[in-house]
Design a protein around this nucleic acid. Structure first.
Length: 560
DNA sequence: GCCGTTTTCGGCCCGACTGTTTTCAGTCG
């Protein structure tokens, strides 16, 4: 992930943070943050294309970015780095501690890290300081502990099941999750739940067994920390403001700022209670009404990231996003012949029950020695698949395999064997820390294998456990586009791989995608909904996703 | 800092909650 854009955006984000910490103008801070985000999401490489073409980048930021591309930093950033110790930046990561307090602590008391702050509080050195009462100090101390222990984001699978648990535990007229979960981000920091319900729902909520700690308790909002460490906010909203509240709490913050500015320009005001002209309600009951009143298309939640969706919606040019119901099959699944836990018969029956038009069985191949796979076993399975096909005249079974991409880019079997499979997924399962150049060559070699149809879980990350491998993704995607090799969107929530930003980049290079479950058990088949979320965040349509295509078109793509 | 069929200057989103304040600042989303 070391595109020039990402490095430049990271430097600009750091500058925004330091600028805020040194008491810089808040509007300028926002300009820097906005520009950084736009640069990171810009499909063209700014070391080649003119950075002035990025929305939100004017003359001043362009100059900083040009200097950064020249020498890996810029003068103003160097200045601020010299003035603000690294630990002071970490101070603002303590919950409830913002830039104002961080500056004050550093300048007046020389506190330059969360650890130093903890020490100052316990030693009583901050007792009686204006603005820092005993409760504030106790909260900060607790925040420092949390920062050290958890405070980490969880992947969407964990967050989704917690949200569903919370919603079923409460009685409400209407209840739904909003926030980054509704936007289908791959990692979630906390969960926002909205409800239309009597105020008694708050006491009911606070008494639930999953509540470990009550962070805030009001009439309209209660925040708790669950036993798993994740924060959940429950907000009670009036029924007539449901749409406005969902719109507001779904975010993203940047998307909301953009559409609020539009409301202001029309002389209106948009809040979580509705869209108003003075006292008059223009729209509030549904999100659809609000977007319509603002003269724009309804923006699906996964697109609400201020990444060009507002302009596109105003022009009526939002793409029709791929939906879960568009998927006609799954092209990456396992059985108990290798590391799956369900039999071929049961997996296929479960796929058929989901209404698929086609279903691929792709067990591992011999190079993953621990799977004890052999060519004989694979051929025997092929016969079983052919026999099973008789039972399912309305669903085409594909016999495939998940190959292992060796460090040199080769795979388990030679071409004369590979071509007998209906579909070949190829994935990296080991040697994760090769150099960027070697890893890039490895992926390109796999793409150039004429029998490799799909690169499985390309970055091989495991959220919270293993980082992405390092590769020149632009070069890999160019090779995939050129060779007609699809990139997988592995829907397993701890993988979520490719991530949405890389999907966008790959699409820019003409790459097609396969949204697969990588199921090792029957319940995993439903994970495709997370993969669809990634695809939607990357603005994919059915045209981009090969397993939404009719069987004949898919078979033509696979070229067998 | 950026931005503009109301602007090249003067704007730039808004409300809830907490802890501390005797009317409000800071933080968060």
């Amino acid at each position: 992930m070391a595109r020039a854009n990402d490095d430049a955006a990271a430097a600009l984000t750091e500058y925004a943070e330091l600028f805020a910490l040194t008491g810089g103008d808040a509007f300028r801070v926002r300009s820097y943050q906005k520009a950084a985000k736009a640069i990171a999401g810009f499909p063209e490489d700014i070391s080649v294309a003119d950075v002035r073409g990025v929305p939100g980048v004017g003359e001043a930021i362009a100059k900083k970015m040009e200097e950064f591309l020249q020498r890996g930093s810029f003068r103003q950033l160097d200045d601020l780095r010299g003035r603000v110790p690294e630990g002071v930046r970490r101070l603002t990561r303590v919950p409830t501690l913002g830039p104002k307090t961080a500056i004050m602590l550093f300048e007046d008391y020389g506190i330059d890290s969360p650890a130093a702050l903890g020490e100052a509080i316990t030693s009583g050195r901050l007792d009686g300081v204006k603005g820092l009462g005993p409760k504030t100090l106790a909260n900060l101390l607790k925040g420092i502990e949390q920062l050290e222990q958890s405070g980490r984001r969880v992947h969407i699978g964990v967050a989704m099941s917690l949200a569903e648990q919370v919603m079923t535990s409460l009685k409400a007229e209407r209840i739904a999750y909003a926030g980054s979960l509704r936007r289908m981000k791959d990692t979630i920091g906390d969960i926002d739940i909205l409800a239309v319900a009597p105020e008694s729902i708050m006491t009911e909520f606070r008494a639930q067994p999953y509540v470990a700690e009550i962070i805030a308790a009001g009439d309209k909002k209660t925040s708790i920390r669950t036993t798993s460490g994740l924060q959940v906010d429950l907000r009670v909203v009036p029924a007539e403001s449901w749409g406005a509240a969902m719109q507001y709490f779904t975010g993203s913050k940047e998307h909301n700022v953009a559409i609020r500015e539009m409301a202001v320009k029309k002389g209106w005001k948009l809040s979580e209670y509705g869209l108003f002209e003075g006292e008059r309600v223009i729209a509030s009951e549904s999100e659809e009404d609000i977007y319509a009143a603002l003269g724009m298309q309804f923006v699906p939640p996964p697109m609400r990231e201020d990444g060009g969706e507002v302009k596109a919606a105003l022009r009526g040019e939002l793409p029709t996003l791929v939906q879960l119901a568009d998927l006609k099959g799954d092209l990456h699944t396992h059985t108990n012949l290798t590391d799956g836990i369900a039999s071929l018969e049961d997996m296929v029956a479960a796929g058929h029950a989901r209404g698929y038009v086609y279903y691929a069985v792709t067990d591992h191949a011999p190079d993953l020695a621990m799977q004890r796979m052999t060519l004989d076993k694979a051929l025997e399975q092929r016969q079983q698949v052919a026999d099973l096909q008789q039972k399912y005249p309305d669903m085409r079974l594909l016999h495939g395999t998940e190959l292992n991409i060796a460090p040199d880019g080769s795979v388990d079997w030679p071409g004369e064997i590979l071509r007998e499979f209906d579909v070949c997924v190829a994935s990296v399962h080991s040697h994760f820390s090769m150099s960027r150049d070697e890893m890039t060559r490895r992926f390109i070699a796999a793409c150039e294998n004429p029998y490799v149809d799909i690169i499985g879980h390309p970055t091989t990350r495991k959220i919270g456990k293993r980082p992405q491998v390092d590769a020149d993704w632009e070069a890999v995607f160019r090779a995939a586009g050129r060779t007609g090799t699809a990139m997988e969107i592995d829907s397993f929530p701890d993988r979520s791989d490719l991530p949405a930003d890389l999907v966008r980049l790959a699409k820019h290079h003409g790459v097609k995608f396969s949204i697969d479950s990588d199921s090792h058990a029957i319940p995993h088949l439903t994970n495709q909904r997370f993969g669809v979320g990634i695809a939607q965040r990357a603005w994919l349509t059915t045209e981009d996703v090969i397993n939404t295509w009719p069987l004949e078109r898919l078979l033509a793509f696979l070229g067998r």
